[in-house]
Design a protein around this nucleic acid. Structure first.
Lengths: 212, 212, 212, 212
DNA sequence: AATGAATGAGTATTCATTCAT
DNA sequence: TATGAATGAATACTCATTCAT
């Protein structure tokens, strides 16, 4: 069944194309402001054709959301060099996550707001997809923290709470970054977040010689 | 001009009623999912009547957004007892803000997502209202921090960055709180945020004596 | 019942005021484009107040239409000096009519189009008022022509047909006049229409002595 | 590209169908009184479907107006037998125009009023379409008159003024015709108008010998 | 597989009109 | 008498989705 396979491959490829197009379109006009026409135009299809690959607009959105979450979670599965301190591992993973944010900038931008308000608002059309994905990411992060933190590394805080706050911090800076006229790399914020995560504003030795 | 005055009062009252109804409706079905009919039903009016008090749906949303921001900013103007340390003042103001969040729970829930994505998405209909209000709050918070922090209180961090991260943290916890089956008071999180803000996860001796 | 009389007078006065305001408003934005609010604003009343003087918007329009027709018809009742030829009487009456057009410029402008299409379009809201008034004017003109024309003055033409054509000619020139940047007096067209009415384009000696 | 061609043809056909349906609907209930639903019903479509062929209601109206004007102007381009006098050519063209009026009866009826009042009323929504088309017809007629009239044929009158008066006359008779219970052919009026155009009411003996 | 065409369900907004005060 | 407030009834236009070709 090579034909079948090829078809499958083509299908998958088209789906990805459409997803990318949708991402661009959404990042421009928002989830509600983007019509199937818009997505189709961006993807080089007709609106009707999109339904060959996705059952509905919602499915496109869900696919984007899931894809994002999958990529996010995969970061945790990437190998980490041995012999690193918790803080070092933390910063490494954070760094990788922020690279992902940068790579999927448009998607993140599109979703952050919507996901935030997702479960908050009731039956507003999009299924549980947003909420689920958001929580899935939180859970993964919390698990990772728990798994990696030793002893007093989290200062006795609930990992999930910490995860949410960490997420929020990044969210806040995403705004900053997006707003910047000539945004540098988002990962540039990684050290700041790391330091803040570990010591809050009482940050110590940023400058000068100091010892740990 | 007593009649005029009374009328004015009635008008203002109706506007507030409608705003509250809109808040309830929005928190249920989201900004886009809520129709003027919905708001009207919730407020005990006809859709057409809403236009006696607001020029458009957008104006209702803007009014909500502005109201929220005004109340937020007013917190900074409330007197603070003398002789408090920075951290004490911080916690006090945070506490008051979180009380506001609790009081305006539905409004916050409605807006957080939308505001977040507001300027992110381009011309998605709602004017600059969201973005402006969001930034206005950030700015006020940053100013307050700058005005109140002495010496190394902010550890040399950019007040605006810090403000954004602080905002984000609260945002993250709002999610947690909202999700809880039997949510306690949102202000209960105030100490946690405060501690995290000042020391990150490296929280120190909350109880008892401890050493570094 | 002096009080009653005064009331009556006041009422009549207000009606006239409103009618004038309506005329101004209509001439600006057309019959359909003008709202009761617009009329009220122009008249210094509230929309609701207009209903004290007129039962409906339609009644305002009808009153305007009737008023116009009444004035038009009254022209025929004004005395005409004796000893005038048919053509002289014709031109005199035409002149007076065109003065009326000039005086009631806005009203004419408002109605000409609507009346024209009035009976043409079926139940488009405005009752038979337009059609009736239009026909009433035609009839009066036709009667006057018949009454005043002797012998071959109308060349054997059906007075009503002639009346319609005459009306049309004036209508055509009203357009011209209205379009002129610095319109002179509408009555300036009177001689042209008269000449055309009597001789068509085969106009004879307008200037100087000429022979056939 | 046969498919594309056929599609094009179908599209054009549908547009014409809709235009005809709109014409019928408008002639019944007027431009303002006719809703997209009405047109759709008359055309056998859904209201939403109309937007596949026309961008807006206004575009339908404009298309009707333009179509009418185009047809009107084309009459001037039809060949005229040589050796005819001015009057003969005049009557021939008038005849053809009146045939057009008869054929496009509903459209004329719909527009005459609206076009007349079009530029008269200010910003009443419909763009310059009406006024432009009206003037375009006037201009064409005036040009034709100027081009064809020799010497004293127009009696020294301004062609444009004459054109307007001629238009008005026909307009007046359209009313008459439309009102007739069993209207004959509109072109029956052609000789009357012609005679009136050339000699006004001083029509001469149409038959037999004559004297002044 | 791709699409032109068709549509049902919606949606904010307008406006003439009513009525209690 | 005057009006602020309320509303029923409309209405043009949009959009996700379906389906025959």
């Amino acid at each position: 069944m090579q034909a079948g396979e090829r078809r499958q491959r083509t299908m998958a490829h088209a789906r990805l194309d459409i997803l990318e197009a949708a991402t661009r379109a959404f990042s421009r006009t928002g989830l509600h402001g983007t019509t199937m026409q818009d997505i189709a135009r961006e993807a080089g299809y007709t609106a009707a054709s999109l339904y060959t690959y996705f059952k509905s607009k919602q499915e496109i959105v869900d696919a984007m959301s899931n894809q994002l979450t999958d990529e996010y979670i995969q970061v945790f599965e990437q190998p980490v060099p041995g012999g690193l301190s918790f803080r070092q591992r933390f910063e490494l993973v954070l760094h990788r996550h922020m690279e992902l944010v940068e790579k999927r900038r448009d998607t993140f931008i599109t979703f952050l707001g919507e996901e935030a308000g997702s479960d908050l608002c009731g039956p507003d059309g999009h299924g549980p997809s947003f909420h689920t994905n958001f929580e899935r990411r939180i859970d993964c992060l919390a698990e990772w923290l728990q798994r990696n933190a030793k002893g007093d590394d989290l200062g006795g805080n609930d990992p999930k709470l910490v995860a949410r706050m960490l997420f929020g911090m990044a969210f806040g800076l995403l705004h900053e970054w997006r707003g910047n006229v000539q945004p540098g790399s988002f990962v540039d914020y990684a050290p700041i977040i790391t330091e803040f995560f570990f010591h809050g504003v009482s940050s110590k030795p940023k400058t000068g010689a100091r010892k740990k």
